[in-house]
């Protein structure tokens, strides 16, 4: 058993203090990062409760419940930012990536404290798979929302569509790594491969949509 709240406090306090000395985009990034860590803790509470309520095992909870809960919780700060601050597309991506990074960092901290960090290979796999997966899923969600906003289609169904994108990506990862053999290797490689593809699409599609907007 680990005391997740204590770990959160321990990581949060220096970051909170640093907010007093930084400004602009760095401050926004740190604030969103902290929100991401908080959201991770809340997701763990909700997933734990649902796991008990539905009497699912640890593996089934990871495959079916966690992706839905975690992505829904990550969506909330992004939606709040979109509704209240009306950020630019870059601003929205920035917040989303920070929330994802905060979430992944806190989850990795708890995982390492639970399972140990003796083996460098496992910790590297963990960092390169789950760490990247949380950033990619929330970035893809923010990208969908940004495209919907630019095309004048930012409605409730579009938000559900964006949420389904991040949830399926997360659920697919959990599903693939839950089975041994080739599927788990594919699962571990999926986040980093998707990150590269997404970066390419982001640049190309961004330019194309910008051109279309001007014309």
């Amino acid at each position: 058993m680990i005391y997740a709240e204590n770990i959160l406090l321990c990581i949060t306090i220096p970051l909170l203090i640093s907010l007093l000395f930084v400004q602009g985009s760095v401050r926004r990034f740190i604030a969103a990062f902290l929100v991401g860590m908080g959201v991770c803790l809340l997701s763990a509470y909700i997933s734990g409760f649902l796991s008990m309520a539905t009497m699912m095992g640890e593996n089934d909870t990871a495959i079916y419940i966690s992706p839905i809960v975690e992505e829904l919780m990550k969506l909330l700060p992004v939606l709040f930012c979109l509704a209240v601050f009306d950020p630019s597309e870059q601003g929205l991506d920035f917040v989303a990536v920070a929330v994802g990074a905060g979430f992944a960092t806190f989850e990795n901290c708890c995982y390492i404290l639970t399972s140990g960090a003796e083996k460098l290979v496992y910790t590297m796999i963990r960092g390169l798979s789950v760490g990247v997966m949380h950033i990619v899923s929330i970035f893809a969600l923010a990208f969908w929302l940004a495209v919907a906003k630019r095309l004048g289609a930012l409605t409730f169904p579009s938000v559900v569509g964006a949420l389904s994108l991040s949830m399926i990506f997360h659920a697919l990862y959990n599903l693939l790594v839950s089975a041994p053999g080739v599927s788990s290797v594919i699962g571990y490689l999926m986040p980093i491969a998707t990150a590269l593809v997404l970066a390419l699409i982001y640049r190309k599609l961004g330019k194309k949509l910008e051109t279309a907007k001007k014309t």
Binding site: I63, I68, S164
Partner: peptide, 29 residues
Amino acid sequence: TYDILIPDKRMPFAANEIAEWATLLLYGS
């Protein structure tokens, strides 16, 4: 993917349900 990896187990409530709801809502829109 689910059908290939876990063919014998009926899929409970999972993330693809959200995608199906989104599909229907978006067709409506």
